[in-house]
Design a protein around this nucleic acid. Structure first.
Lengths: 333, 333
DNA sequence: TTGTATGCGTTATCAC
DNA sequence: GTGATAACGCATACAA
């Protein structure tokens, strides 16, 4: 489209060498004031913008990091991305986002940008690839995971302790005086769902309540599935009086059903969600939920990833950040 | 991190020249079966992945397109992005997303990726830069706008007719028998908001209803502002019986207020939103709204943008795609 | 069918 | 303080 103006053109126009132009552009110290002026006005006049293609090749770095997410639909990622951007930007990196739509092959395709050095590093937010694959990639490339951990995965990871979070959530429901606790979770297993389920069971055990598999509904991530889950649970011979859902979206669906059947939410029936999405305090009644530190997780994972890019000995640890309960009307608070 | 294996290493290992390696990798026809085998097994053995840094510089194209959005919070962008990706992918392009968080300077910084040829083109979804700036960028670079148009902007744009959409929405409320129509819009002006307001006024005029500025509330994009707007409108001496909001988020806030005051939504008071976000049919009562063809807009803008990249004579037209009304409980449907 | 050589736009090393 | 020039990794024109 544009007959590219290069550093050579600027050099010619400013009557200096390309080396000097490069020095000015990169703000090196040893260059005369005259040269600086000459170069700057030439740059201005020609509308020159240095090509990253040349620069990146020469320096063999791009200062770009790729965040790979399922889709932009989960508004919940927003704060994570923001944390990533702030951390990256402060060190001169840009964050680019790409979406997989849950297709493992496409996730691999995007990781190709990493293998091909189009980006310096990648962060996976909820990968669909298996641990073994990610492990082998992690040996050769700068890669990290955020929000979601993987069992037996030896890759830098920042997440929360989902077991403890699930446990805390359910313990709270029990402390509210409830003994019959339903769980709505997903058939499609992500490690965070599994961990939250484990937390659910541990909380029951903490309180000497026997685990009853009838109280667990396996559905999908959509609101509709939450409705189904609640419908199923409330039609049990001895329905639960409290329901923990592994996501707010699901919990809202569940409350939708409960509302339509006239249950008094927060009294007859209490609900706890997970994620603290924006909508959880827009919905009426407002939803109690577990909040995870999205911004902080995003920030930390980038800081660690950038450290790794410079390190000879990369850090492949798992970092867990603290979560918290947000109590609203749906639990009678 | 990784002592890069290059095309040279592959050539050596396969006992051929780098040219032959390149030919095999790019699936050129004129190359012997032997060579293909040799190269492929060398690639395999060495774990070679071609560097985009070299390739992109040589071909001076990246086959990457940047989508610049405010943030990933508006789940509403999701389908647009999806349309963009499908269109791009089918032509061998990747779509990368970057967020501005409404900071014009950061938008400019991201456009730097375009100037510096780190991407071949960019799509702005709701730019914060002014028309003059974007115009001048559009002369030299492959750039397009989507979802949001700008007055006097001579840049490829794909959007809907927001004037007509607003007009249709309000006309529907009037056809439902309402004459006192409130409008909740935003103080911070985007062209789409302005256009929807114009549509509101035109619909009133269509029906011989005088415009009353008391019926218009200017707030922000958040749910809370929708509540305020509704509160304001319903406390007027002669409150409206129908409320049009320029976004679903705002409309949900407005309904929140109405619910809390005991109005019977869909009967005493009807609501129309805009965008058809996922929440609009999760909220109870379900929200009537205006749907825009997100996927189609994303798809079209990329198709046109890629055409432009090849064209000597780029297309700077404005394309408007059809919207539709989605009728639910909030309008008594 | 294959190899050699050049150049893409930078930055960095080295002489001056 | 400055200017040649090599090198980054690749694709391709040209020769063979």
């Amino acid at each position: 489209m544009l007959m590219s103006v290069t550093i050579k053109d600027v050099a010619k126009s400013a009557n200096v060498s390309v080396a000097t132009v490069s020095r000015v552009l990169n703000k090196k110290s040893n260059v005369s004031e005259e040269a600086i002026q000459a170069v700057n006005s030439a740059v201005q006049a020609l509308g020159y913008s240095p090509s990253f293609l040349g620069r990146d090749l020469r320096k063999s770095e791009t200062r770009r990091i790729l965040a790979i997410i399922a889709s932009t639909e989960q508004s919940f990622y927003s704060d994570v991305i923001r944390g990533m951007e702030v951390a990256a930007f402060s060190q001169g990196y840009d964050v680019l986002i790409a979406t997989t739509h849950d297709v493992p092959n496409h996730e691999m395709h995007l990781l190709g940008m990493l293998f091909s050095r189009a980006v310096d590093g990648a962060v996976l937010l909820g990968p669909k690839l298996d641990a073994a694959t990610i492990n082998s990639l992690g040996e050769k490339h700068n890669i990290a995971m955020c929000l979601e951990r993987l069992d037996n995965c030896n890759v830098l990871t920042v997440t929360i302790d989902n077991v403890k979070a699930g446990r805390d959530a359910v313990n709270y429901l029990i402390r509210k005086g409830h003994k019959k606790i339903g769980l709505i979770t997903t058939l499609q297993r992500s490690q965070s769902s599994i961990d939250r389920e484990i937390g659910y069971k541990l909380a029951l055990k903490d309180n000497g309540i026997p685990y009853n598999e009838d109280y667990v509904y396996f559905g999908g991530y959509e609101t509709e599935q939450g409705m189904r889950g609640c419908e199923y649970l409330m039609n049990l011979p001895s329905p639960p009086t409290a329901i923990f859902s592994i996501s707010d979206i699901i919990a809202i669906g569940a409350m939708n059903y409960a509302l339509s059947k006239g249950y008094r939410i927060g009294k007859d029936l209490i609900f706890m969600g997970f994620d603290n999405i924006q909508y959880s305090h827009m919905f009426v009644p407002h939803l109690s939920t577990v909040e995870q530190p999205c911004y902080a997780q995003g920030k930390l994972v980038i800081e660690k990833l950038i450290e790794n890019m410079k390190a000879t000995n990369p850090d492949h640890n798992l970092y867990t950040l603290p979560h918290s309960l947000v109590l609203r009307e749906s639990t009678g608070d």
